[in-house]
């Protein structure tokens, strides 16, 4: 029964995406071209990676607001490890990702060990991690990376932006985990009723700890990709990205109360937002108009699918 309603929202959203794509390609002939669409994929990878992990987190009824700060911290550390400590760049990036993952683990530990509600815990670490990024960087940027490093953020593999491969792989793996494994079912169970799942012997704490760690990892990888895309590091990178990711996730039909949501929905939501941002801009709508429209679409899409569902089940 849950499955049906899930499918409904995603079908609806996919239809909406198709309509939007058609309308926008009539508005501008430069919209529906392979190169433009691939380029949009490049621009949405960082949010996409974070949104995939966020889907799991929100499906358990949690939330992670610190992802933007983890992204910034990882970006700064990549530069600092490489330039100031003199690590080889690949090692520096890996070490930075490790720290970002650790930051996610710390979130999970605070949430599970101390029973701090996720929103409060990650609000606190949002300030803390951003602060660490600022302190460590001393407001200095690290620039001048070797050319090969830009392959990740600016290059292509087989004609497709490098990071889009990463996003695609992450999306596929994540949807398999969420839909077909015992672990994925645990995620839904926690989101539907945490107390009941604890009593039925599911490893609630371990699962949550792993999820927040994974969320930190995703944000950290996004951070390194971001550095490679913009070729510099700044401590304010990724500010506000948490709201963009959450928007994609809830637009994709994941319930903020937990218990339902799919990776496919999140990806469709993400594509819809990106298509609107890009297509409207090409059609001559200014940035502030675009933000307004995305806000309206978010409310209306959830409203429509709510009405749709209710009339279907009753």
């Amino acid at each position: 029964m849950n499955w049906k309603s899930l499918l409904r929202h995603e079908t609806f959203l996919a239809l909406l995406l198709v309509v939007v794509l058609i309308v926008l390609s009539f508005q501008s002939d430069r919209f529906f071209t392979v190169s433009n669409l691939l380029n949009q994929g490049r621009l949405m990878t960082e949010i996409g990676l974070i949104a995939i992990a966020m889907t799991f987190v929100i499906a358990t009824g949690g939330i992670d607001l610190s992802v933007g700060s983890i992204l910034g911290l990882t970006a700064i550390l990549t530069g600092v490890f490489w330039q100031n400590i003199g690590m080889p760049l690949p090692l520096a990036a890996i070490a930075a990702i490790a720290v970002g993952t650790l930051a996610g683990f710390a979130n999970g530990a605070i949430i599970t060990r101390f029973n701090v509600p996720p929103l409060i815990a990650t609000l606190a670490t949002l300030a803390l991690y951003r602060g660490l990024a600022e302190g460590i960087s001393q407001a200095r940027s690290v620039r001048g990376y070797p050319d090969w490093f830009y392959v990740l953020g600016q290059g292509e593999v087989l004609g497709v932006p490098t990071q889009l491969w990463i996003l695609a792989a992450a999306a596929i793996i994540a949807s398999i985990i969420l839909a077909y494994t015992r672990w994925g079912r645990t995620v839904y169970a926690i989101g539907s009723n945490e107390v009941a799942s604890r009593f039925s012997g599911l490893s609630v704490e371990k699962t949550k700890l792993a999820l927040y760690t994974a969320s930190g990892f995703a944000a950290a990888v996004a951070g390194v990709i971001f550095v490679s895309r913009v070729s510099t590091t700044r401590s304010d990178m990724g500010t506000g990205i948490e709201l963009d990711a959450i928007t994609a996730v809830v637009l994709g039909g994941t319930s903020i109360f937990g218990g339902r949501g799919t990776i496919a929905g999140t990806m469709i939501g993400l594509c819809l937002i990106q298509a609107l941002k890009n297509g409207l801009s090409l059609a001559g709508v200014k940035g502030d108009g675009t933000i307004m429209l995305i806000g309206a679409v978010l409310i209306l899409a959830i409203l429509a699918s709510n009405l749709f569902e209710r009339s279907g089940t009753r």
């Binding site: 913009v230 506000g240 801009s281 090409l282």
Partner: peptide, 17 residues
């Protein structure tokens, strides 16, 4: 917002347009 990512995305869109 004075945000590097938003600015880059905007310019990218105008290049395409």
């Amino acid at each position: 917002k004075a945000n590097i990512d938003d600015q880059i995305t905007l310019i990218d869109n105008y290049i395409t347009s």
